[in-house]
Amino acid sequence: MSVILAIESSCDETGVAVIRNGREVLSNVVASQIDIHKVYGGVVPEIASRQHTRAIVEVATEALAEAGVRHPGKPDSTGLDLDAVAATNGPGLMGSLLVGVCFAKSLARVWGLPFIPVHHIEGHLFSVFIGDRAPEWPFLALVVSGGHTQLVRCDAPQQYALLGATRDDAVGESFDKVARLLDLPYPGGPSIQRAAEGGNPGAFDFPRALRSHDSLEFSYSGLKTAVLYALRDGGGPPADLAASFQEAAIDTLVIKTRQAVEQTGLRQVALVGGVAANRLLRERLGALEGVEVFMPEFKYCMDNAAMIGAAAHALFEAGVRGDSRTVPSPGLPLV
């Protein structure tokens, strides 16, 4: 049993959530900065840090009130008792991570609760444990976001093996870059998905990098360049370009995931990270034969604190603890 208050501030979303037993989300508040960063075509680290610093108290206040837990510093407060405070401590933007970790350590100190530092990607992996249906260990995970494209063998909490990752751009990053080429707004994921509606995915034959390669590595820089050349050669209807790019990007993920299933024999696959919100990817991966796919709800694909709380529950049970001297690590490795 555990009730955990978790904080996520690794990039441009300030999130605070309260979660029971790693599965039941009592509150999940996210203050997104997308509109602020949009005009720059991407996340500006200094602006992100400043926004987290401004937003954290309001987001935490809302999350605590909504969860119906007892405010430990409020004598007349009633409700469930909190057992721990958790925060993302990497990887991510240092200035942003510091805000969540410092705020969380203060809460833990004042309330006399353990502080649990959580790896951001382990948080994403645990997003599939939220709710009633969860995979059984060991399972395979496809982690796809603006910063990551990885196939991970998940043996137990904190025990992961990296099977393959991107050699260059992350898949979410390639959506952002291609969106810019096509004059579509940031972030690229949703805007390309929208632009691709009604487009012909077969109009352009964009490459599926490393398709017949045995390794489980990815490469996305060539795909972006192929779109650039197609534009230079006269282009075509934007919907066709967007649909053909999306088709190639998603196809590669599905091909590599199928190879990973064959190589490991693991038949349960978790699809996590921001790109897991892509409808085509959810549809294609879900259609893989003989594979049981676990996908978080859309709101748990994006950066959020509920997933950090879900991972923190497992770490809490395993006795993992940070302390007052814990500092974030922007390049924290998962394995």
Binding site: I56, V57, A60, G73, F103, S106, L107, R109
Partner: peptide, 9 residues
């Protein structure tokens, strides 16, 4: 961030 945490808690 640390002092806001103390104040909030």
């Amino acid at each position: 961030a640390t002092w806001k945490g103390l104040a909030f808690a």
